[in-house]
Computed example of a mutant assay.
Amino acid sequence: MFIAKVTGSVVATQKVGSMTGHKLLVVEPYRLEDKKRASMVSTGRTFIAVDTLGSGEGDYVLVCQGSSARLTPETKELPIDAVVIGIVDSVHIEKRNVYDRNGS
């Protein structure tokens, strides 16, 4: 599981029938900045993840990848490798708030 920022979406009008109606998001994994450990920074990679929670561009989300992505009730029959399993409200590292969804 990892934290990622939603940076876009994917529209595919032709796809496997079981994927019809599922929202596809472009997500960019983030990590803790090395030196000061006071912020999160991009890893420079992107993935496509199925979203069942209603997250949107700019949100930080929790992503589960691999065979575990098919362990939710909503995704157990889908041919997927990544799923959004949570929308991040805040991240605290060493008693320091490095991200807050409300901007505070």
Rank of each mutant, 00 (worst) to 15 (best):
F2H: 08
F2P: 03
I3C: 02
A4N: 10
A4Q: 05
V6S: 03
V6R: 02
T7L: 05
G8D: 08
S9H: 05
V10T: 04
V11L: 00
V11T: 01
A12Y: 05
T13R: 07
T13Q: 06
K15H: 09
V16Y: 09
S18R: 10
M19S: 08
M19E: 10
T20A: 08
T20S: 08
T20N: 11
H22T: 14
K23R: 15
L24W: 14
L24M: 15
L24I: 14
L24S: 10
L25A: 09
V26C: 01
Y30R: 13
R31C: 09
R31W: 01
L32E: 12
D34G: 05
K35G: 09
K35Y: 11
R37T: 12
A38G: 07
A38W: 09
M40T: 03
M40V: 14
V41S: 05
S42A: 12
S42V: 07
G44F: 05
R45N: 12
R45D: 15
I48V: 15
V50A: 04
T52C: 14
L53P: 03
G54Q: 13
S55C: 14
G56Y: 07
E57I: 15
E57C: 05
G58L: 08
G58H: 12
G58P: 11
D59N: 13
D59Y: 06
D59H: 10
C64A: 10
C64Y: 02
G66P: 07
S67C: 00
S67G: 02
S67I: 06
R70I: 04
L71V: 02
P73H: 03
P73G: 02
P73C: 00
E74N: 07
T75I: 08
K76A: 02
L78S: 09
P79R: 10
D81M: 02
A82R: 00
I85E: 03
I85T: 06
G86W: 04
I87M: 06
V88G: 00
V88H: 05
V88C: 02
D89R: 01
D89F: 04
V91Y: 03
H92I: 15
I93L: 12
R96Y: 03
V98Q: 04
V98K: 04
V98G: 01
N102H: 03
S104Q: 14
S104T: 15
S104G: 13
